[in-house]
Computed example of a mutant assay.
Amino acid sequence: MSQDTKKDQPLFSDELGISQIVSDLRAVRQASLEHRNRLNRPPKLPARKVLAEVVDGLGAALFPNRLGLPDLREEGLDYFVGHTLDVALRELVTQVALELNFSAEIATTFEESREQAIVLVRDFASRLPAVRKLLDTDIRAAYEGDPAARSVDEVLVCYPGINAIIHYRIAHVLHQLGMPLIARMITEIAHSSTGIDIHPGAQIAEGFFIDHGTGVVIGETSIIGRHVRLYQAVTLGAKRFPVDADGALVKGNERHPIVEDDVVIYAGATILGRITIGRGSVIGGNVWLTYSIPPNSNITQAQMKEALPSGRHPDAAT
């Protein structure tokens, strides 16, 4: 078949009506861009697949002996860490530039965004030693808090809670540096694989342990103190969602709980609103809590049912 014959052929088979579908999708796409005033600047977003590879690389650089290559020797560790960081951080620069370009109010070139991205990623990279120190406390907390754990190495490579926390610790730094989209994408990667949903804006201190973990939800403005332990299906959520005069949700307000140091929250507990769980408290399984409690409290489902004849606390959400 000649080149001219190929050029004359339609791009798509009309047997399935693909040409019309492509045309209809283009019209819908353009209408969406026009509605968002982005017709001349279509969105080019960071790539989830690339960010997953970046986090894998950062994990290997943070823990080269356990998450790196299996045949690494001591004399080659620094080279491996340096090379792995170089690859991961260069990819991250590109993804950060995409977010900056996407979110810029004034149109900028990709090269301008990339120069800014290099500064931000350099700042991010400088914080990685501090991230490693925090993760060491989380791994130690998991090992000491679970009698089934045989070693800290097992905790690191097997526990979904630690996987989610690694993603969160990395994402939280990016969130602090002004990259909320990439940060959220990274925590959602962990959410998809572990069932643990931690918003990168949450503030979580050292020695954090999530046991089992599936169904855990930690909202954006949650503040969690040192050596806190959560079990599966715990929710630290918002009690209500205020709206503005136009009926749109008010965003960014402090709406999630504050959990002080040394608190244990057992499976299925739901804690809602900007309330404080006092230091050293224990929240039993399946408790629904919407009011602050003092330090060293012990809240159980039975106590909640005794609060009123109806079984509802007067501050309970409706």
Rank of each mutant, 00 (worst) to 15 (best):
H227Q: 13
K239A: 15
D153S: 07
G145Q: 05
D244I: 00
E91S: 15
D244M: 00
D56E: 14
G76F: 07
P64D: 03
G195N: 03
K305I: 11
A307W: 07
G17H: 02
A183I: 07
G268S: 05
I277D: 01
I275M: 07
E105Q: 13
K7R: 15
R132W: 09
T221S: 07
D8C: 12
R36G: 00
Y291G: 07
V250Q: 14
R73K: 15
L177N: 04
E188V: 02
L156M: 07
K305M: 10
K49T: 14
M304C: 02
D56L: 13
E15S: 12
A267L: 04
T194W: 03
L230I: 08
I21M: 11
R140L: 15
R41A: 11
A183Q: 00
A302P: 00
D8H: 12
A302M: 12
G161D: 02
S310R: 00
L174Y: 02
N40F: 11
P314H: 00
Y143N: 06
H167P: 07
V87R: 14
V55F: 04
I162E: 06
F12Y: 15
R114D: 05
E254I: 14
L156V: 06
E74N: 12
G68M: 04
V287D: 06
I299C: 04
N286A: 09
E188D: 11
Y159I: 05
A142L: 09
V259F: 07
V282S: 11
G195M: 00
A267Q: 09
L16D: 14
A248F: 12
R29E: 12
A302N: 10
F110Y: 14
D211C: 06
I258P: 01
S151M: 01
D86N: 15
F12H: 13
D14S: 12
F241Q: 05
R38T: 04
I182T: 14
Y143C: 06
A104W: 06
H227K: 12
V50Y: 05
A125F: 10
G68V: 06
V287P: 03
N65K: 15
N40W: 10
S193G: 04
I271K: 00
A149E: 03
G161E: 06
K7S: 12
D24V: 07
V152H: 04
A60D: 07
N163D: 14
I189E: 11
D14P: 03
D71S: 11
L25S: 10
T194N: 04
F102K: 01
P242H: 01
V157P: 06
N40M: 13
K305V: 10
A47G: 07
L249S: 13
T187N: 05
M1V: 10
I204H: 02
E15Q: 14
V93D: 13
R226P: 00
A88Y: 04
K49V: 14
S23W: 03
V217R: 08
I189S: 09
G280P: 01
G219L: 03
I218S: 07
I182F: 04
Y143T: 02
G57T: 08
V119F: 11
R36C: 11
P295T: 01
S13E: 11
G219Q: 03
R26A: 15
S113N: 15
L249M: 11
K133S: 15
G201D: 03
V152N: 09
V55D: 02
D153E: 12
H167T: 03
V228Y: 10
E91V: 01
A88L: 05
E254R: 09
R240N: 14
